[in-house]
Computed example of a mutant assay.
Amino acid sequence: MSRVVIAPDSFKGTAHAADAASAIALGWHSVRAADEVVTRPMADGGEGTLDAFEAAVPGARRMPVTVRGPVSAPVRTHWLLLPDGTGVVELAATSGITLLDPLAPLDAHSTGFGEAIVDALDAGVERLLLAVGGSASTDGGAGALSALGARFLDAERREVALGNRGLGRLAAVDLAGLRPLPPGGAVILGDVTNPLLGEQGAAAIFGPQKGADAATVGVLDDNLARFARLVPGLSPETPGAGAAGGVGFGLLAWGADMGGGAALVADAIGLARDLVGADLVITGEGRFDGQSEAGKAPSEVARLAAATEVPVALVAGAITAEPRGFAASVALTGLAGGAEPAMADPLRWLEAAGAQLASETGVVVAS
């Protein structure tokens, strides 16, 4: 009998991390029924971070809140209060791209994320963990900062519109009214190291995912640059400033510290402890690409596994970069015959992936 740990991130827009882990486990057990399988859903600061903390931390409580969504329609959501007084707020649950249809690259904003942070502050949290993946906007975090008390003014000293489009008329940024950080500070759970501006910045890299064509990407970047020039003492080149359409930049301006989302989640769920004595760990995400090695969940799982010399297998919806360091890999698109059928029934193909790995990794996992 072997011990297998299954620790995937969510397959964004198609399967939550917990469901993905269960499906892979079901497939594995269909081939190797006697094996011990431990599921540990992961997250990297994007969609599913609240779920990962809630599942891992006994006594975690959901705190309901209604906020303005990405284009201001009300969103009923929650943040998480941990027993030690830490508040976990997830941008994907308040201002996320999955909350918006159709996409609105110039007008989507992060205000609801800021409103949820304010709700946590009003509840008296001791510390904040701010999960910033999966945003719908490219507003530099201006929306979130406005909810926290900042003012964004045009040449006539009038408030500019929410969203990146409003930044194009920005003449002054007033941060004097910002709410103070909680006593224990705030940590940004980010999964990217991109700067705010330029070829690797928020607009160029993530704008197309949010509906921006080439011309719109240029407008988004110019407006972010205008914003950055008006924020004193913070370089737009700071690693992670481009996270979540620039929300990383806005939170850094507030005084938050940049942290590694996947590493903090892995620590919270005790993943390193679970890997001791394991014969194999299976991780995964919706798309394994060039960004996956920059602090996302699979790379963090692989890093922890390497420390205990546990082989790692990868399951991804699509694999577009060489999966270096993995003992085996399976793409759902390959199993299903394309992206459309894979996305239409992801749990079926995740189960099939688990079964395939159980069949093919016999040399890695002793019977």
Rank of each mutant, 00 (worst) to 15 (best):
I6V: 15
P8N: 10
G13N: 10
T14F: 05
A15W: 06
V31T: 14
D35R: 05
D35A: 14
G45A: 08
A52W: 02
F53I: 10
F53S: 05
E54A: 15
G59P: 04
R68M: 09
R68W: 02
P70K: 12
A73Y: 08
V75E: 06
R76E: 13
L80N: 00
L82I: 09
P83K: 12
D84S: 04
G85M: 08
T86W: 10
L91M: 14
A93D: 10
S95E: 04
I97T: 02
T98Q: 13
L100H: 04
L103H: 11
A104V: 08
L106R: 09
H109L: 11
A116V: 07
D119W: 01
E126H: 15
G134P: 09
D139T: 10
G143L: 03
G143C: 08
A144P: 00
L145P: 00
L145N: 02
S146D: 07
A150E: 06
E156L: 10
R157M: 08
L162F: 13
N164P: 02
L175M: 12
L178N: 00
P183V: 10
V187Q: 07
V192F: 01
L197F: 06
G207A: 15
P208Q: 09
Q209F: 11
A214R: 14
N223I: 02
L224V: 14
L234F: 05
G240S: 12
A241T: 07
G242E: 09
A244K: 00
G248N: 11
G250P: 00
G250R: 02
L251E: 01
A253F: 00
G255P: 00
G260I: 02
A262W: 04
A263I: 06
V265G: 04
A272P: 00
R273P: 00
D274K: 12
L280S: 11
T283S: 11
G284W: 04
G284F: 06
G286M: 12
D289K: 05
E293G: 14
A294C: 02
G295T: 12
K296Q: 10
R303M: 09
R303C: 08
L304T: 11
A307W: 00
V315R: 01
A318I: 10
I319Y: 10
R324A: 15
R324Q: 12
G325L: 13
A327F: 00
A331Y: 11
L332T: 06
L332R: 03
L332A: 07
G334Y: 04
E340W: 07
D345Q: 14
L350A: 06
E351Q: 14
V365G: 06
V365I: 15
